[in-house]
Amino acid sequence: MNESEKKRFNDRVCVGQVRISADVYITSGMSESAAEVEIKVPNEDYQKELELYERICDFALLHGEDLQGLFQTRSYYYMSCFIRNTDAFKQVFGEYDALKPLFNHAKGDAAEFLISFPERSNYEAQEPVKDAFLKLIKNHVKTLDEITWHSFENRALTGETEGGGIDLITKESFDFEDERDKITTLSREDFVQYTLSSAFEVDYYTTPLFKGAEAIGEIDGFRVFYNSRGFYFYWNEDTEFLLESWLTYPSYPYGWLS
């Protein structure tokens, strides 16, 4: 990890929880999880679990690559890093009973190990922030003139999308093409609520969002913005909590990829 990634890791991970996946190749360029374990340290009295957890953290900081958010559960967003030196990981952790499933799954040699930590965040405060954000943008979206709204509608119906994927909560597959008519079947207020998304993002992701944006309100001292390229957003620079609502969903907003 570089220094920025190490700082993010040290500042944001939830102490005492880690998930580790042993990934194996299913094709020459694609891998999937063959086995997964979760280590939890309920409190400081669990010395054995604490020692293992701390060793995993140290190993991740030393050998982890490509720290990024890859998945979420109903409770947490996770930061994950890849351990590509699988032999070193086995040498250090091969004798721990709690990690034996990672090495004894009989599905082939590990291509990599994925170590994932839940981010530290104030989940209790998310819903009030989301409610306040929705109230602001629902009031604002009603004021957009018809020409502007029709341009977003056209973008939603014809613009480029990511294609599809797997819902991280339900695990069901979806196709963004099936979402294109939402802008025509929902009211404006319902549409911005439908397209609401949340994540934890660093400043290099959020900086481009401010180009062409105007503040339309604030929540607890952090501003809510409307960007004429076709989206609303709120970013708390202290917690790195980001809310977005795309007015061109499921297509990328104008200039999103430039």
Score class of each variant (00 low, 15 high):
174 F>V: 00
163 G>Q: 10
217 G>S: 05
185 T>Y: 11
152 F>L: 04
234 Y>L: 05
192 V>G: 02
232 Y>Q: 11
234 Y>N: 05
248 T>M: 04
132 A>Y: 08
163 G>K: 11
174 F>K: 07
184 T>Y: 06
177 E>C: 08
242 L>V: 02
149 W>Q: 04
193 Q>N: 09
203 D>V: 08
186 L>G: 02
166 I>H: 09
175 D>H: 12
144 L>V: 04
233 F>T: 00
134 L>S: 06
226 Y>C: 05
237 E>F: 10
218 E>L: 09
210 F>W: 04
159 G>N: 09
208 P>T: 00
227 N>W: 07
207 T>E: 10
139 N>R: 13
243 L>W: 06
186 L>K: 10
176 F>R: 09
214 E>D: 10
126 Q>S: 07
228 S>T: 12
154 N>Q: 15
168 L>R: 15
153 E>D: 09
212 G>R: 06
216 I>T: 02
213 A>V: 02
175 D>N: 11
157 L>N: 11
159 G>H: 11
162 E>Y: 15
137 I>C: 05
166 I>M: 14
190 D>L: 06
236 N>H: 13
161 T>D: 01
233 F>Y: 12
183 I>C: 07
136 L>K: 14
246 W>H: 10
215 A>G: 10
250 P>D: 00
129 V>T: 13
187 S>K: 10
181 D>I: 03
228 S>G: 14
249 Y>Q: 03
198 S>H: 13
175 D>Q: 12
224 V>Q: 04
